[in-house]
């Protein structure tokens, strides 16, 4: 019973198990058993062959650069000239680097602000477009469309929109009567961050909507009906039925948006340039500056390794918290 269960779970290993257990039982018929094992071996070999392009891609485009990054981080590695071994020197310099510590704090703040905003907006839109109504496809498309745009082009679009002299935002605020004179969006950390947040929500919310919508549609209607019959109100259905059943999708969406925010670069690089006075400098922006403005590639690599560890830890905690307990 147990063997059949594990075999049923799929994958190349299960094929071997399925072929192996009957083979040992029918020891009398040696020939078919051998043929089956060779068949099994061939099948697993085929499986390996089929995934090998993916493995090669991972090795070449992920494994090798990762190893190189770690190797670089242990050197003083100027853009030009010869690298010199420096052991943990670059890592030891990190606690004394105020710019990095500040960028760490700012990136965390940005993540804490943008993640719930994106999630709530995405969930709201997902509820609006989940049913099969006339014209719902149009709205799905319209809200998803900005996601197809590159981050850089979207950022440039918003640089123009938030420009105090030719931009649309200040003009509209002025015409509506909310402001008396154009707001210099990029001159203070608060307004600059607000501008970036607006851009990112506009750009990414469609993707979150799509994921959450798929999650909502996978909840069987019977469960909702049963809840209705049991006398559950809309709010209690949402909190006690829908959201718990949406757990996996929520984990996915949150991991996406937290990782994306911790790695934020283009939107800030283009819209604020880290200014005013480094106040909106994100971690990746500082890694970029260290490597390609200050030419300290080894130090940039060390910061990247630290960021990788932080990212892995945050995602691990997140997945742990959102784990299905049953």
């Amino acid at each position: 019973m147990t063997t059949s269960l594990t075999a049923g779970s799929g994958g190349t290993g299960s094929a071997a198990a399925r072929a192996g257990s009957p083979g040992s039982r029918s020891a009398a018929g040696g020939r078919p058993a051998r043929r089956r094992t060779t068949l099994a071996r061939r099948r697993s070999l085929t499986g390996l062959l089929l995934v090998s392009p993916a493995l090669a891609l991972v090795a070449v485009f992920f494994g090798a650069p990762l190893c190189l990054t770690v190797w670089m981080s242990l050197h003083r590695w100027p853009l030009l000239g010869r690298p010199v071994w420096s052991g943990l020197g670059n890592y030891l310099a990190i606690p004394g680097d105020d710019t990095f510590l500040h960028s760490l704090g700012y990136t965390a703040l940005y993540t804490v602000v943008i993640t719930p905003l994106l999630f709530l907006a995405g969930l709201g839109l997902a509820f609006l477009v989940r049913g099969r109504r006339r014209g719902v496809g149009v709205f799905r498309t319209v809200w998803f469309l900005p996601y197809v745009l590159g981050f850089a082009s979207a950022a440039y679009l918003f640089v123009w929109l938030f420009d105090p002299s030719v931009g649309l935002v200040d003009r509209v605020l002025d015409d509506v009567g909310l402001t008396a004179r154009p707001v210099q969006w990029m001159n203070s950390a608060g307004t600059a961050t607000a501008a970036v947040v607006v851009m990112v929500v506009w750009k990414v919310v469609g993707f979150q909507m799509l994921l959450l919508m798929a999650g909502l549609q996978s909840i069987p209607e019977e469960i909702d009906e049963a809840a209705l019959v049991d006398g559950s109100g809309p709010l209690s259905t949402l909190v006690r039925i829908t959201l718990p059943l949406l757990r996996r999708t929520m984990a996915l969406v949150l991991v996406f948006s937290v990782s994306g925010s911790l790695l934020a670069f283009e939107q800030f690089f283009i819209m604020t340039g880290g200014g005013p006075g480094n106040q909106t400098l994100t971690i990746v922006n500082w890694i970029y500056n260290s490597s390609f403005v200050n030419f300290q590639l080894g130090y940039g690599a060390a910061l990247s390794v630290v960021l990788l560890v932080v990212l892995a830890a945050v995602n691990a905690v997140q997945l742990l918290l959102l784990r299905e307990r049953d």
Binding site: T99, G273, G274, G275, G277, N278, L281, W286, N289, V293, N294, F295, Q296
Partner: peptide, 19 residues
């Protein structure tokens, strides 16, 4: 050798010190 990182860059200690 690190003129840019120390002085000219907008992230430099020199810029921050003056502000």
């Amino acid at each position: 050798r690190q003129e840019n990182a120390l002085f000219n860059a907008s992230t430099s200690p020199w810029s921050t010190m003056i502000a």
